[in-house]
Simulated assay, not measured.
Amino acid sequence: MTIPRAFVFADSSPVVKISPAKSVVGDWVLSPRVAVFSRRGPSVAFPAVLKPDIVAPGVSILAAKGDSYQFMSGTSMACPHVSAVAALIKSVHPGWSPAMIKSAIVTTASVTDRFGMPIQAEGVPRKVADPFDFGGSHINPERAVDPGLVYDINPKEYTKFFNCTLSPDQDCTQDIGKLYLLNLPSIAVPDLKDSITVWRTVTNVGPVKATHKAMVEAPASVTMSVDPSVITFKKGGRQAKTFKVTFKARQRVQGGYTFGSLTWLDDRTHSVRIPIAVRTVIQEFIADTS
């Protein structure tokens, strides 16, 4: 322990009190935060798929171990939280696909802490968390049950890319390079040279009649546009609408990743947000995994 010289010389008889360390709980704790041990993106094997998807409580979780209980930390503690929320959504919406459930969890996550401040990521130094720290952000079970819109995926699309990872051929190489066209509740573009257009489809699971407007937070040095920027559902049933998102590089550089988001807002309480990560490049063989 180092005592500042100014304090020592301020008094002829300085007094120092050393108290034992203690744990702080309750309202004084700044939370949620992304733990320092939490795995970060991007995905090295498939950078066009944004990872991680979501974060959940995983630090000092009271868990059963043997015949007793123990406070434990890690993804093994976070996973049960997400599994429980998925089971909750499935119980309310038994007809939803796994992709719809995942979408509901990712697009309704909280990007701010309980004080309304941006969620921080622990590390050296501590920083404001980005999609490579928390994906969609911190899981919010109450909102996930009623997302308003979801991004669904035909299982055949998953199968096509899975088969390509097992035995890639010439056609597969082209498909894997366009993984950002999968209808995921996120967009990652690791190779933006000039302009790229990505398509997504949203399915209405909210009110029968609803209008959603796009709110864009473009990544730095990138122009981002959504067409159409307003989508309207007028009839009953599970209706879907397709839109396109175009990214244009505003400067020709071999850059790092920058982050943004696309949020669909209706005139009620639904806010359907997907995280976005874009990296501008000049030559594709230069790697950037930080």
Rank of each mutant, 00 (worst) to 15 (best):
S43D: 06
F243T: 10
G256E: 11
K160Y: 04
A220D: 12
I187C: 03
F162L: 11
A277M: 04
D227F: 12
A86F: 05
I105A: 05
G116E: 03
K235N: 13
K241H: 13
E122H: 09
G206H: 05
F115Q: 02
S13N: 15
V189I: 15
F259Q: 05
P42R: 00
N163G: 09
V82C: 00
S23L: 13
P207G: 09
H81A: 13
I89Q: 06
V226A: 05
K127I: 02
K90P: 04
M77E: 11
K51G: 08
A35T: 01
T197V: 11
Q283M: 15
F233M: 03
E142G: 14
F247W: 10
D266K: 06
L88M: 15
A220M: 13
C164G: 10
M72I: 07
L182E: 02
T269P: 02
V278L: 10
D288N: 14
Q283R: 15
G148E: 07
K22V: 08
S186L: 06
P228H: 04
K51Q: 13
D191C: 13
G256H: 08
S38E: 01
I119K: 02
M77S: 10
P42S: 00
S60T: 09
T263R: 12
V8L: 09
A64N: 11
D146M: 12
K160A: 07
V106W: 01
S110M: 09
D152V: 04
A287H: 14
L181E: 12
H93N: 12
S68M: 01
Y158K: 00
S271I: 04
P219N: 03
V59W: 09
V222P: 04
R114L: 07
T201L: 06
P219I: 07
S195R: 15
E284M: 13
K156W: 01
T223W: 12
K102N: 06
E284H: 15
V24N: 10
K178S: 14
A188G: 05
A210Y: 03
R268P: 02
I89V: 12
G148P: 06
S290T: 12
R39W: 05
P57C: 07
D266Q: 08
Q120M: 09
S290A: 11
W264V: 06
D113Q: 00
K127E: 05
N204Q: 07
G177V: 00
K244A: 09
M1W: 05
I231F: 07
K248G: 01
S167L: 14
V230R: 09
A99E: 02
R250S: 15
T75Y: 03
W199S: 15
G26A: 01
I119A: 02
D146R: 14
P47L: 08
K22R: 10
I187T: 04
P219V: 05
S23R: 12
V145C: 08
S76A: 11
G116T: 00
K213S: 15
N183K: 03
K213V: 13
A240G: 13
S38I: 10
L62M: 08
Q239R: 13
T280N: 14
I101L: 01
V272I: 14
I276T: 05
L192W: 10
V202Q: 06
P125T: 02
M224C: 10
D171R: 06
S221R: 13
P190N: 14
P185E: 00
R33A: 11
V34W: 03
